[in-house]
Design a protein around this nucleic acid. Structure first.
Lengths: 350, 350
DNA sequence: GTTAGCACTCGGTAGAATTGACTGCTAACA
DNA sequence: TGTTAGCAGTCAATTCTACCGAGTGCTAAC
């Protein structure tokens, strides 16, 4: 699934002395706030630094040389590079989610009801509302769940519906459209056999299918092969995108908006992106770190969802590189934790 | 569901003489093409009219007085009003879908496979690609379908899954989380009773539930009430939106884009909008005709999907009022017709 | 190592002048 | 009476200019 490789942020040897760090932090914070390049005097004034703007200036030259800052044009202030944001995220952030929001999440999960899909959908709306960024919620595939029940339902002579219930509470349907006409009786018998064959197996388990050449056996064989034909991963994964209109608030330039929307439309792409980042053990991919050109001006925050320690999906937030990392990351973490608990816990389950 | 009323376009007494009509048509066509106000000389030159720009001007004054045209400011050309577009759509359009696109639709439906949901989803993508507008595909609710099979599956003592298969091929699941612990045997027996009770009924049919006070009867009662608790309409309807990134191409102004996206996020709203328009027997709602303020700069084209004459959903296209009506309407019609045929026909079915 | 001071750069803005695409009106014309 | 050429007037958009000011890099002094 790893269609592209996440470039691992160079961890080592990037240590800035205290003053450089303070300056970098000031620039990042200010630029996130104002979206404008930040000048030396602004930094000198804001930070708890007791140096003049001239000193800040010479430090900034150094920071620029080392790749943490960039200058849009000669007579402008500095803006952070991806590397600058990365350092900020890794070393200079602090604080947690505000109490109000904590409460909001808590109340949400206390009151949310319904099937898994609805919960995930509403969770994505929640995340988006809390942060005002676009959210992504990925529900895991049931590739590893076991089958609780298989049922073949007769629509008409040539159309049957294979309904499979998994131990994770998911239900999947497939159509069977054999060329021969099967009687209701044959369908029912095939259904019985399928149950006997598949119950308590997972999709990864190969089973012994009957080799007879009658309608029942044919139905059974076809049903089994359809079920097992599913992609081992990915297939059956669910993606919920919340607050796509936020894209238009948060990015500037219609063209950027269009590009980001176009990417969000390709849900498989989004899933693989989230998965890649998660695989690298990152919690946020900044700018070009995810190696996906069209999203070079974006940052993507992810947090895994687990059920009893087993990966079961992820939540994500998509914003511009100058996003409010602290709040957004805190939100993603709190929500993913609560979501994990929700599914594991004694709450109602889908 | 009719949350707002579609204002019926005033049909009567709007008849323009041939020359006014020609001029109006020229203005609409030109403005759709260029997005600019259209001046009298442009009209005089373009149309198959042998009059001077001065004559066109005086006709335009009349058209403006009658509400077909408007002037952004004194020294600008004219742009069509909603009423102007309406007249254009009703009287001045001609032509059908190009052969290439006809072919594209045909090939699409010849090759598309899979469950209903996938077909609808891909159809919405197709429509959007063909027209470069955002598409909406609404799949009908199964409120009137009959139940083919009900099954209660045991997840654990307190979690059961109610899986219902309808005659239209849809499958719906609901969670049951009784406070008492039911044995697998009780669950199975309840499942059997549910089947006996509900098969061949529709959701509108009231059924006689057992009044005993044991676990089985309790389960049956709860299952029946959950099923019947569904909203008579709407619930279970599926909405697929294709090409939302087109919004950013087709509307100008980030704020407009944001608004339209925000509306598309509320799928129920979209459904009711489409339904309202359909109920009025319209195939396109222009500007403020649908009475929904935030979409005042939009036109929404709709075409019903029917299976054997029964309403089964709709397809729609959302664009700016200056959209390419002819092509878009043709596309919507062809696709809805093919889609209807696809579901009715001998193709595979979900 | 730090700072004040200074010359320089360059994007953004405000105003003025200009352009040009229109209109509406009027008077002449078929 | 309907049509047209001609003309004066309007107004958004464009271009130009001048200027401002935020911010830099450099240097000399502390």
């Amino acid at each position: 699934m790893a269609r592209r490789v996440v470039r691992k942020p160079t961890k080592v040897l990037m240590d800035l002395d205290a003053r450089k760090a303070t300056i970098l932090k000031a620039v990042v914070v200010e630029h996130i706030d104002t979206a404008q390049p930040v000048g030396s005097s602004a930094v000198a004034a804001s930070a708890d630094l007791d140096v003049s703007s001239a000193t800040v200036r010479s430090e900034m030259v150094a920071l620029e040389r080392e790749g943490y800052l960039a200058q849009p044009h000669t007579s402008a202030g500095r803006i952070p590079t991806d590397k600058g944001y990365r350092y900020f995220v890794d070393h200079l952030q602090s604080g947690v989610l505000g109490a109000v929001q904590q409460q909001q999440v808590k109340e949400f999960f206390a009151s949310v009801r319904g099937e898994v899909e609805e919960v995930l959908e509403q969770t994505s709306t929640l995340l988006s509302q809390m942060t005002s960024y676009t959210s992504v919620v990925v529900g895991a595939s049931h590739a590893h769940a076991t089958i609780l029940s298989v049922q073949l339902v007769n629509l008409d002579a040539h159309h049957h519906l294979l309904v499979t219930v998994f131990s994770d509470g998911s239900v999947v349907k497939h159509s069977l459209t054999p060329s021969y006409a099967a009687t209701p009786k044959e369908v029912m018998e095939a259904s019985r056999q399928l149950n006997a064959l598949l119950i308590n197996t997972s999709l990864a388990t190969r089973v012994q299918v009957p080799s007879r050449r009658d309608h029942e056996a044919d139905l059974v064989r076809e049903a089994v092969s359809i079920l097992h034909a599913q992609q081992p991963v990915m297939e059956g994964e669910q993606v919920f995108i919340g607050g796509s209109s936020r894209v238009a608030e948060v990015f500037d330039g219609v063209e950027t908006v269009r590009q980001v929307l176009a990417i969000l439309e390709q849900e498989l792409l989004v899933v693989s992106l989230v998965q890649d980042i998660l695989d690298q053990g990152l919690s946020v991919a900044i700018g070009s770190e995810h190696g996906f050109e069209p999203l070079a001006t974006c940052a993507l925050i992810v947090a895994p969802v687990t059920i009893d320690g087993v990966p079961a999906g992820a939540v994500g937030l998509l914003g511009p590189t100058r996003m409010k990392y602290r709040e957004a990351m805190a939100a993603a973490e709190v929500v993913s934790a609560r979501l994990s608990r929700h599914f594991a816990g004694a709450d109602d389950r889908g």
